[in-house]
Every structure is written in C-alpha cells, then in structure tokens.
Design a protein around this nucleic acid. Sequence first.
DNA 1: GGCCCATAAGAAAATCATTCTCATTTGCAA
DNA 2: TTGCAAATGAGAATGATTTTCTTATGGGCC
Lengths: 151, 151
Amino acid sequence: MSETDRRIAVFESQLKGAGLRMTQQRRLILRVLAEADDHPDAKGIFTRAFAHDPTLSLSTVYRTMKVLESQGAIERHAFEDGISRYEHADQEHHDHLIDVDSGEVIEFSSDAIEELQRRIAAELGYELVRHRLELYGRKKQPARKPARKRG
Amino acid sequence: MSETDRRIAVFESQLKGAGLRMTQQRRLILRVLAEADDHPDAKGIFTRAFAHDPTLSLSTVYRTMKVLESQGAIERHAFEDGISRYEHADQEHHDHLIDVDSGEVIEFSSDAIEELQRRIAAELGYELVRHRLELYGRKKQPARKPARKRG
DNA sequence: GGCCCATAAGAAAATCATTCTCATTTGCAA
DNA sequence: TTGCAAATGAGAATGATTTTCTTATGGGCC
Ligand SMILES: [Mn+2]
Ligand SMILES: [Mn+2]
Ligand SMILES: [Zn+2]
Ligand SMILES: [Zn+2]
C-alpha cells in the first residue's frame, strides 16, 4: 500500500468517523491532497482535481477543506500573501522557512524552539495553545576563496 | 516634549525626508498612530481619526499606511484573522502573544528565540531576512491550594 | 436492486478587506 | 500668488472566501 493510499485511507476513516459522506468530489480532493508534497492553495487543489473531474466546483474545494480542517485531517497556513494553503496533517509538527527570492517553502522542526515558545508563554502567565512561526530567508552562498581578479 | 509629539516629529521627518507632502490627513493619521498603544486595523485608525476630521476617507488611511510602511515608519501584522494591523516602528523588535479567549495582544521579546531562529535558518543554508512569530495562548490560573469542599 | 431524504454539490450572488479610478483639491517650491 | 504634481474623497473594482438556493446523490433500509 503506497503512502498516498494510506493517507487516503486515513482521510476516509476520519470522515466516516465523523458521520460524513464519502462523495466522489471528496474522494478526488483527498487523493489530490494525499499526493501533494507541497502547500497548494484552494485554486491549486481545484486545478489538480479539475483535471480528473471537470464538473468539480471551487466551492466544493473550499467546503471540503473546511471539513477536513475541522477534522484535523489537514493544516491550513497563511504565509505573507494571506492566501490559505493546505497540507495533510499526517506528519509530525513542523514550521516553515520561505525563500524570499523563489517562494520555495522549506519545512523544519526544532524541539528547542518549540520548548522555548512554551517557556516564553509560561513566563507571561499563559499556556501555549498553538503558534505560528515562519522564517523568511535568502539562500547563503557557500563560503569560498575569493576569486583572483582576472586579466 | 511628550512621547507622542516625539513620535509625530519622527514620522514627519521620515515623510519629509522621502520628499512626501505633509497633508492635514497625514498629520491626523500620524497623531492617531503615535497615540496608539495597541494594534489597530485600518478601520480602527479611520474611526479614531474620523472623530477629529469627518471629511477623512478610509482610502486615505489605507494609502497612508502603505506610504508609512514603505518608509519603515510603521509595522504591519496580520494575525489569525488575516486583517492588517498596524503599530509605530518606534520601538525595539518584539513578537506577539495573542490571548485566544480575549483577543488581547501581549508583546514580548526574547534574544534567545531571535538567535535560535537565525541559527535554524543558517543550518538550512539561509540567511534570516525576517520572521513571523505569534504565540496563541490561554491564561494560566495561578496555582492555589484546592479549596476544601463546603458544607 | 430500488427508496428515501438528509447531506452535499454546482452555480452564482454576497461578503469583506483592500486597491484602483478619476474628478477635484491642495501642499509647497519658485 | 501661481502652477502643477501629488494627494484626497467617493465610489467602483478586485480577489479570496462564504453563502444561498436549487438540484443531485450517498448510503442505510427494505
Ligand atoms: Mn508544511
Ligand atoms: Mn506590537
Ligand atoms: Zn512549531
Ligand atoms: Zn522576533
């Protein structure tokens, strides 16, 4: 069973467990999400799904994302442009670094920073419920010997 | 000279330095921003300013915020609801903790977490350009002796 | 396999923050 | 003062997302 199939099975059981129907559209969207290894927005998911079923509507994508989010099956992120982007929640918690030049999204996780956030909240008298951490960076050039001037 | 007046003077010199005009509307909006000790959105700024000049338009608030942001005079944040909120940049860098029950915004700063973010980016081969860090938390009840059951 | 009907889908209108357009006003340098 | 580029006010436009309304359908039950 492929990773994609396993994710779809998880999605389906989450829906079933909540007493929700497994429609053709949901099945298709689940497949798109399970196959995604990036952070597509609603339009991106719609485009990928529409290729398989040209009767699908964008409303259904939005509705399905809302259902899946409330089931905890996916995570929604809004980076700097404010547009909602989605990824399946079938993975350990991580945060994101966005390449400011290319827009590429790189995932990372750090126990140290997770712990530090909890501690900061605690010092302020709060229990940390969730957080948003996004790093925006520029690729470093690998250090190298300065080239000799030519000519 | 009050802190408010000093902030206004800074704002004005920033505008003048960029060759921009000091209009009545901008003067008013600068005052509202200088006096603010919270994180108002455009409508909030408009409401406060409108009380002093009922000819002001919301478009002008948005335009002015864009100008001020490009001058580095204010900072713009978009917390979970995606609405842009503003604060004057006349203060040291800090991040925010949002009380999930009351919506209250608490400012904090931590050299440790700033450094850790730089290090994480560096380990990924990136130079940190900026970041977004928001903690969402719930007020802790102060630990207390369990009350004896009454009656 | 059909039946029923609450749930879900499609299409299009509505919403809401923000930006843009354009006619009119105004800051400010000369 | 004058001239004019820059700025404003009012309202239209935009774009992501949600809602409305009518029609379609998943899936438990016979
Ligand atoms: Mn991710
Ligand atoms: Mn702040
Ligand atoms: Zn994290
Ligand atoms: Zn910070």
